[in-house]
Write a protein that binds this DNA or RNA. Structure first.
Lengths: 344, 344
DNA sequence: TATTATAATGTGAGCGTTTACATGAAATAG
DNA sequence: CTATTTCATGTAAACGCTCACATTATAATA
């Protein structure tokens, strides 16, 4: 008897070869306790010999686990997401779960459907990196009691089971205070997308630092952006056009800071001699540009790791309440800031 | 009768509600021709009303299509991959296939297993972005007659059913010729990972351009790198240490070019006044750094698109032979090159 | 109107697993 | 040495769907 089919090795083939029932093979696969060591060995050997690979579909259909978790991200262009995923990967490497990445930016409308599908058995748990408040399907997820954790997302005033974020307020404060310590008094601020908690928090950090140091907040120094590079450029232009332009500019993220640097140069000014620039995120490129960008490090990779740990916990103890975890942010001093002219 | 289960709507629920057999519902889902328009409408309406979502697992188990394709990438940190995926996404938006991204860098050893799994029914087709020659599972894929296309991969001397790449030789030639036209005679070259066809091709393009312009090739001007930034730095240092250093340096990719720029500055020299630098890829950041990098544009996004189109064709006509498609590369002149000192 | 081709729908089997339950063998107790 | 418990394994029924085939309703032809 030849196998003439496209010859996938199934649990049954293994069973036959190992002279046991397929249930026993299944038990071995799921490391069930009730299998004699001898049998277990024989089956495992057979599996190896035959090159058996479990069929995920069948597995999950039959009600078992899928052995994989999903990450849903808006897109993959920015180093930001890449870092987070690196962390997730690293942490997952220790368990034997597989990772599946889904992008959602393609069709925002599909998002809900996507998530429904995922929760329907493609993955055992979900890691969500979603900028906008995704209230629609979060509801679905919660209803189904499906394990998920939110990364870097602070839906304002909402109550999520598990979320890991960074200390944005603290970061905003540190950055601003650093500039103040250098001697800057007029500090421009370019916000992120104000729908987002993190953007808000960074702004609040900036404000607090000013207050703490008895510097009056001036609305004209705050430019509303959306986290994209062009906003950095435009914002810096607007700020530099002011009758009394700022001597330093704090951009809510690194890519906007790069836009700022462009704008400063475009005006024939230099960074940091004429204008100091500080960013937020510490994406890989920020150390590569010239001048190397002083910024606030958000532990992206670590956020990925921690989120994964949280999900793993959630997976083993579904009822566990985890809550919010905030990772510290850190000032990274490089070359894009110095004391203001007048101050030297 | 209440549904007290976790109440997933199945094909059977829909069938009951719409007063047809479940086979008919299945037909509607798969847009089979043999369904009366009236019935089809009724069923579709019922599906919508009940919020039916097909179960992928079951579908693929039963031997049908999964309605999704997979992309297997080494990692996601570099903008390079992001661009390609953006293209895939865009093209897929037109069809209604879903996209699933898998990273493989986590455990190279798992790669084979992964692919086996995928081919086993998780997706209908595979897009592979894999730097190293993935001979092991390519074999498996071919054997199973599983539809896949390789992106930016030229396995040396191998014969793959479908691959889309960029005109690397042409790009190498163009870049080198541009430098020569500017007046450079001593042009340093930093290679990519020489296991890769694309790296080889770029080098060959460089050589040909020299030959065409009657410039002798000097082995000391060629530094072997691996596509990572530090190699750009080290390579440039080595080249600049030469008794007669080059007046221009051509790095096999943009991130190494950034390393080169660093190294040049580190020596107290300036780009492009003292040393011209040219890259390859045209990743988004290359226009953002200072000086903006002159480079060769690899149409990454388009490669993603084209690859997807190829896969879609393969999916509808499994027997179709497609072969290799090479997208043109283009010289992007920015600010990092100028005529050499002596030449002015 | 009877006969045949054709379109529309239903039936049943099976995809590769897991899992509750049934069975049988070995081990302990009475 | 039989009765009872424990351990190891087998059996059968799902899981939600697709697909080949059987059946029935409808239209076309003689």
């Amino acid at each position: 008897m030849e196998k003439n089919k496209s010859s996938e090795v199934t649990i049954i083939d293994v069973a036959a070869e190992a002279h046991v029932s397929y249930a026993t093979v299944s038990r071995v696969i799921n490391s069930d306790i009730h299998v004699k060591q001898e049998t277990r060995d024989r089956v495992q050997q057979t599996m190896r010999r035959l090159g058996y690979v479990a069929n995920r579909q069948a597995r999950s259909l039959a009600g078992g686990r899928t052995n994989s978790i999903g990450v849903l991200v808006p897109d993959l262009g920015t180093g930001y997401i890449g870092e987070i995923i690196r962390g997730i990967d690293a942490e997952l490497g220790l368990s034997d779960l597989d990772l599946i990445v889904y992008t959602t930016h393609r069709t925002a409308s599909k998002e809900v459907n996507y998530v429904a599908n995922l929760a329907k058995g493609m993955v055992d748990g979900l890691l969500l990196v979603l900028p906008r408040s995704p209230a629609d399907f979060i509801g679905t997820l919660t209803q189904r009691n499906f394990p998920f954790v939110l990364i870097d997302h602070q839906g304002i005033g909402q109550d999520f089971p598990a979320v890991v974020g960074a200390a944005n307020w603290q970061g905003g404060f540190k950055a601003t205070e650093y500039l103040i310590k250098l001697g800057h008094q007029r500090i421009g601020f370019i916000t992120g997308w104000m729908d987002l908690g993190c953007a808000l928090d960074r702004l609040e950090g900036y404000r607090s630092a000013l207050r703490t140091n008895h510097i009056a907040e001036e609305p004209e120094l705050i430019y509303e952006g959306t986290f994209f590079q062009p906003d950095g450029f435009k914002g810096a232009c607007a700020l530099l056009d002011l009758p009394t332009p700022p001597t330093a500019i704090f951009a809510s993220n690194d890519v906007m800071a790069m836009g700022v640097i462009d704008a400063v140069r475009n005006r024939g000014l230099r960074v940091p001699e004429d204008v100091s620039v500080i960013g937020f995120d510490d994406i890989p490129q920020s150390s590569m540009i010239h001048p190397a960008l002083t910024t606030i490090n958000q532990p992206l990779e670590k956020m990925g790791r921690v989120a994964t740990q949280m999900l793993l916990e959630l997976l083993s103890q579904p009822q566990k309440q985890i809550g919010r975890i905030e990772l510290p942010t850190e000032l990274i001093v490089r070359d894009s800031c110095q004391a203001p002219r007048a101050f030297k």
